[in-house]
Structure formats: structure tokens, C-alpha cells
Design a binder for these strands. Structure first.
Lengths: 204, 204
DNA sequence: ATGCTCATGTAACCAGTTACATGATTTG
DNA sequence: CAAATCATGTAACTGGTTACATGAGCAT
């Protein structure tokens, strides 16, 4: 009765993560998007400005936004944490550029993140889409795993909400409002499930 | 072709707002929630600690979270901007308390915010729920207005998404992904609409 | 001469979270 | 006596946004 319809919390996903090494704090989806774009490049090398364009022109730029300032900041951060290595490429007549490469750690981190479903319905709209996009380009099998597990998460969630709605509550104003909140969450969860079912990865 | 499925932007609602006076920047939903709680009190006066409890124990605390530090910060902000007035109430044996009252400006601001639907589907989960809850307690007619207009917003949105999906696109990988994104948004929008239709305010 | 593309950033700012400070008084 | 309640905050930190700085070459 205490944990019925819990409040929105911004820093969620900390307790649900498997936390095997607890290396760093949660990264923004944009950071993984950068890792993914680096992984995508044929040569394995790419510099910031190119990343910026790939981001803005590609599908990722239509899901999340990433200003150049933040992009270079994330590249530094990823390099500092050992997920990419960066070397300077001298150019004549043009400014020098830094080319970045994924490390083994970076590749592992990216694949782990891609394969893990998001916990809440709200995160479907951003995180999950980025994961799906990257999974498809990095390794289509990851996409199948991701979609399968995400469907499972959403089904569990829908079941829990249904169960909560089934248990009768005292009928005051707050409770009826709370029921509305639960029904909203349930419809949104079901909508997400329906959508997941239409993805090509759902043919299994 | 350029503005098909636009990116997620955090600072949205600025350009869509009617901007009549442009008094202050966008406020957090929690600030309006505080205004609403102050408006709810019978005497018209309430102090921070009571607000904190009302918040945590009531339905609002299950939708959004508000730490005491931020609560007092918002109260100062609202007082500074002239939406509430605060006076100190001396107590013997207890710490002095500050009791807060809505000003005419504050009341107007609250009602304006409550009556205005949210622009995006994403905001349904937080902002809209807070608006609905406050509308019901402050003035049930506001709730009818809000729900009616919100349904209209969602219908327009659904129509636009449907239209975008109808226009055929070149069939590359990015486009098919983009179509999935559009379909996700459409299902989520429709789910929100279905839920809105189940609210008592939708009987008109 | 003007401004655009390349290429990488810095600086200032703002919002929010977490944790703690204070100090009396009542309750177990 | 310890702990919770009352009541209001402060301080440090995190992270993200916006805007601008730099400076060469190239196209109009």
C-alpha cells in the first residue's frame, strides 16, 4: 500500500543496473551515440567535426540534440575514462584535427549499453530509440536482443500496473486521481508494447 | 522534407507560447504545484513545512518530487517575483514560521498555467497530471477546459503525424528508422488521447 | 570585403540533487 | 536520555545550455 504509484525520479536506473564494476556514473545517451558513431566508421577513426555532422544530418540528430560544445566535452570525457583514444592529426592549411578510435573497453561499454533495455516507459522515446538505431548499425543481433528484452520489461510493467489497478482502494478524490495516473501509465506502456511488436526485430 | 521528425529539445514551449507579457522564464511544474497548494488552503495562508507535508503525502508527491531545499528555494523565488507574499509569524517555543499567501498576480499565473494544455506527449506524464490535479481542486471548470484543449492538441498532433507517415519517403535504412520513430510518436499520442477520453472531464 | 566552411573549444550561467546545519520541544 | 518533530535553510557539486572565441582558407 505504500509503494503504489511511485513518484517520478530523475536519477533512476541506478538500482536496477546490474552494477558489475560500477566504473563511472550514468552517461548521457549522447555519449553512447558518439561511441556508436565512432564504431560505425569503416576506418575506425573519425574526428570531432565529422562526428558533429554525422550527428546533425543522420537519424540521431533527429532524436537527441548535441551542441558542438557538449560534443567535444564528451569526447574529452570518453578519452579520459579510457573508452576512446585520441591522437592529433596535423594538417597543412587546415586546423589540426583529433582523430578518435574506440578502445576495447569502449566497444564493450557500447555493446553492454546497447543490449540493455530501458526500465521506464518514458525512456523509450529517447534512450531506447538511440539504442535501437545503434544496435541496428553496430550489430543487428544486438537489436533483436534489445527488442526482445524491452518487450519483456514492458510486459512485466504492464502486469504490475494491471495488478495495482485490480486491488480496490478507498474511494476518495486522491485515490480516484491515483487510479487515473495508473491507467495513464498502463495505456502508455501498452502503446509502447504495441509499437515494439511492429518492429522487424519482433519476428522471432 | 526538412522538418519531418524533429529532434527532442529541452527548452520547448518557448516559441509556441502566446507570450503576452513575457514576465519570467519557464517555471518548473513544482512551482505551480506550490502555488496550487497555497491556493487550496482554506485560510489562504500556509507555511513551508506544511506545504512540504502536503506535497509529500498528497497526490502531488507521487507525481513529482520536491526536496525541502528546493521547496524553500521556490518559495523565495515566487515571493521575489511577486506571486506570493510572505510574512513571519513569531512562535514561542517553536521556530518562527513564514506564512505565505497568493497575490492576485500569483492567482492569475496559476490559473493561466492550469488552463493551458501541454504541447508535447512527453509532458503528459508530469506537467499535465499536475495541471489536472490542481485544476480539479482549484476550479473544476478549469479541468474541463484543460482536458478539452489537451484533447484538441493531441488530435492535431496525431493528424500531423499521420500525414507525415502518409507522404512516401525514399526507402533507405535511415528513412525506415525515421518511420518507426514517427509510428512510435503516433501510438503514444493516440494512447494519451484514449486516456484523456476516459477522464470524467471528457463527458461534454 | 564579406561571410562561409573547417575545427576545436572556453566561459558564464542556471537548474537541480544530496547532504548537512541549526536548535528548540515533545514523545517514548 | 535518545529520537523524532518542527521549521528553515545553506553549501557543494553535477550537468547541461547558450553564446561566443579563434583563425586559416575559400568562394561570392
Amino acid at each position: 500500500m505504500t509503494d503504489e504509484w511511485q513518484p517520478h525520479t530523475e536519477t533512476e536506473g541506478v538500482e536496477t543496473s546490474p552494477a558489475p564494476s560500477r566504473k563511472g556514473p550514468e552517461r548521457a545517451a549522447a555519449e553512447y551515440a558518439l561511441l556508436g558513431l565512432i564504431a560505425q566508421t569503416g576506418s575506425g577513426e573519425i574526428h570531432g567535426y565529422d562526428l558533429s555532422r554525422s550527428f546533425a544530418e543522420g537519424a540521431l540528430g533527429r532524436i537527441i540534440r548535441l551542441e558542438s560544445g557538449m560534443l567535444y566535452h564528451y569526447l574529452k570525457k570518453l578519452a579520459r575514462d579510457g573508452y576512446i583514444t585520441s591522437r592529433i592529426e596535423r594538417q597543412s592549411g587546415r586546423p589540426d584535427r583529433q582523430v578518435h578510435t574506440l578502445t576495447a573497453d569502449g566497444d564493450a561499454l557500447l555493446r553492454m549499453w546497447i543490449a540493455a533495455p530501458v526500465r521506464s516507459t518514458r525512456e523509450i522515446r529517447l534512450e531506447f530509440l538511440v539504442k535501437l538505431y545503434l544496435a541496428r548499425t553496430v550489430d543487428p543481433r544486438h537489436a533483436v536482443t534489445l527488442v526482445t528484452e524491452q518487450r519483456s520489461v514492458m510486459r512485466t510493467r504492464a502486469a504490475r500496473l494491471t495488478e495495482q489497478l485490480a486491488t480496490p482502494q478507498p474511494a476518495d478524490a486522491d485515490t480516484s486521481f491515483g487510479e487515473s495516473v495508473l491507467r495513464l501509465r498502463l495505456t502508455q506502456t501498452r502503446a509502447a508494447l504495441d509499437w515494439l511488436d511492429t518492429l522487424p526485430e519482433s519476428r522471432n
